[in-house]
């Protein structure tokens, strides 16, 4: 589904990703873990086409997407939920939900299906993005991308700053997303949440993938958690 081969990404002169490779099979939920500043967001932005790796290659559904513009990548079926949510504050919840272009060959979730899983949003349908709480904004960011029919989701810390009951809601949605056959690359700091939902884990450390194992192995590996994640 997604194959990243040896990507190197810079911000100006700062060399952030120093040869990152990873691979996702269709239907998998895989996390990208790492300490603050490890380069997780940079990886996501590189996949989405905001940053161009040099060198390095990214293949999505068998096609090379390196160098394509974000909207071209999105239309192939890649969905992006950014770290800071980036809800459009002057648009209503409904307008936010109707914005994405449906692409990638599969239909997006209908509004009915969205409201079934995100009942909070239905009550807020006419409210502006700026009137939502942080948790509601996060729900909207996820719901918005589900409308696009994306086959692969890039989720950057969806549980950050959320109350425990909202994290449980998102956990339920993750499982629903998985059941529907979507593939997910999840960036997460909340290890408990990560091990609840994921099949496999990658850990970014020093600009490279330092560890890569199944959920089962990772759960029990205290040494790796201490060494690469500081916990």
């Amino acid at each position: 589904m997604l194959e990243i081969k040896d990507i190197h990404t810079y911000y100006g002169e700062s060399y952030i990703l120093q040869g990152v490779s990873l691979e996702l099979q269709k239907g998998e939920l895989v996390t990208l873990l790492g300490r603050n500043g490890a380069g997780k967001t940079t990886t996501i932005k590189t996949i989405m086409g905001f940053l161009i790796p040099r060198p390095g290659a990214i293949h999505f559904k068998g096609r090379e997407i390196t160098g394509l513009r974000p909207h071209q990548i999105a239309r192939m079926g890649m969905g992006f939920v950014p770290e800071d949510r980036r809800i459009f504050s002057s648009l209503t919840v409904l307008e936010n939900l109707n914005l994405p272009v449906v692409g990638g060959g599969s239909d997006g979730w209908s509004l009915d299906k969205i409201f079934e899983h995100f009942s909070i949003l239905e009550e807020r349908i006419r409210h502006k993005g700026s009137e939502l709480s942080g948790g509601e904004q996060q729900m909207l960011a996820i719901a918005r991308i589900l409308r696009s029919g994306a086959e692969l989701l890039l989720l950057d810390e969806p549980t950050e700053g959320l109350a425990p009951f909202l994290i449980r809601t998102i956990e339920g949605i993750m499982k629903e997303i998985k059941k529907s056959g979507m593939t997910v690359l999840l960036v997460e700091q909340n290890i408990h949440f990560a091990t609840e939902v994921a099949d496999r884990h990658y850990i970014l450390y020093g600009g490279k993938i330092a560890y890569h194992e199944t959920n089962q192995e990772f759960k029990g590996n205290e040494e790796v958690k201490r060494k690469f994640l500081g916990i």
């Binding site: 950014p82 002057s90 648009l91 307008e95 449906v102 692409g103």
Partner: peptide, 22 residues
């Protein structure tokens, strides 16, 4: 119109939703 308003706020995010912001 809603795309234009969204683009005024955050053009990169509009692009990431599959809309050619150019």
């Amino acid at each position: 119109g809603s795309i234009i308003r969204a683009g005024t706020e955050d053009s990169d995010m509009v692009d990431a939703l599959g809309i050619d912001i150019g």
